[in-house]
Simulated assay, not measured.
Amino acid sequence: MTCPLGAGATPDADAPERAHTDFSRDLSYGDYLHLDELRAAHQPVTDAHDEHLFIAVHHVSEVWLSLIVRELQAAMKLLEAGITDAPLKMLTRVVRAQEQLTNAWEVLKTMTPADYLQFRHAFGQASGFQSQGYRMVEFLLGNRRPTMLRPHAHRPDLHSPLQDALHGPSVYDLTLKLLHARGLDVPAEVLDRDLTAKPTLNEAVLQAWLTVYRDPETYWDLYELAEKLLDVEDNFRRWRFNHLTTVERTIGFKPGSGGTSGVGYLRGALDTVLFPELWEVRTRL
């Protein structure tokens, strides 16, 4: 068969023939991403068609959660050092990753209740409630309860980082310290509060934010940071709402596999406000 390029011809610069194809000694795409291990982790325990979808959506979600944790921790380290510009990029990346997480529910919604019942019994008490990645995101954003550590007590490698996050400052705590460092009035009872306690609105902190929002030119970096944090919480709310509606349309008001009440528990979570002063400032302006 005659070579279409002719003997000794050199492929066009844009031709696929110019691509590197010998990976006997070089690192390939699959090797770099450890795709064999990734695919090997996809192990349904039944023959149900939709269990593949269920596992894929949760695998992908956990990868996005890992990225969100990494970006939040990096942003927090810089905020602690008083740096505000680079964290904005990291928080923007968090927001984009959150969008992917939320969109994953739309794929899972293609699974009907009858589809789910074909394999739900097979994974026992396993539940997204036990996701260490999701819990870490919650803790870093300031929604922390010591009881949420219990599902990870059997795994010190998972429990220890959560324990540290439980007792460490959240991204909002670090932001309030920045306000204080810039001369705004953030009271000691807020700066030295019990970090495991649920966020509650503080009037003095609200007044500090009102100062920022009424003079954004003077406090532009703090103003931008506040709006970016609102983006993060806004997307977090959307994720929780889509989680609620996906569960309700799939199992109705049955209890969750991990022992929670299911829809009732998820509905209660919608009332959580992570950055209360940043929401209230809109009313007071």
Rank of each mutant, 00 (worst) to 15 (best):
F54R: 04
I55G: 05
I55M: 12
I55Q: 04
A56F: 11
H58W: 01
H59Y: 00
V60N: 03
V60R: 02
S61Q: 10
S61M: 09
E62L: 05
E62D: 06
V63L: 10
V63C: 00
W64N: 07
S66K: 14
S66R: 12
L67W: 04
L67I: 06
I68D: 04
R70V: 01
E71A: 04
L72W: 02
L72P: 07
Q73C: 05
A74N: 09
K77P: 00
K77Q: 08
L78M: 11
L79R: 01
A81V: 00
A81Q: 07
A81C: 00
A81T: 00
G82Y: 00
I83E: 11
I83L: 00
T84R: 03
T84M: 06
D85L: 05
P87C: 08
L88S: 05
K89M: 08
M90A: 09
L91I: 09
L91T: 09
T92D: 13
R93K: 08
R93M: 09
V94P: 13
V95F: 06
V95R: 10
V95L: 03
V95K: 09
E99T: 14
E99A: 14
E99W: 04
Q100K: 05
L101D: 05
L101K: 04
N103C: 07
A104G: 15
A104V: 12
W105S: 15
V107I: 15
V107D: 13
V107C: 12
L108T: 13
T110N: 14
T110H: 15
T110K: 13
M111C: 14
T112I: 10
T112R: 15
T112Q: 14
P113Y: 05
P113N: 11
D115S: 14
Y116G: 11
Y116F: 15
L117T: 11
F119S: 13
F119G: 12
R120T: 05
R120E: 07
R120S: 08
H121N: 11
A122V: 05
A122F: 08
F123L: 15
F123P: 12
G124V: 02
G124Q: 11
G124E: 09
Q125Y: 02
A126D: 04
A126V: 08
S127A: 07
S127C: 09
Q130D: 13
S131V: 03
Q132M: 03
Q132P: 03
G133Y: 04
Y134P: 12
Y134I: 06
R135Q: 11
R135H: 02
R135S: 01
R135N: 02
R135C: 06
M136Q: 05
V137M: 08
V137T: 08
V137C: 06
E138R: 02
F139W: 00
F139A: 07
L141N: 09
L141Q: 12
G142M: 14
N143H: 12
R144P: 11
R144V: 10
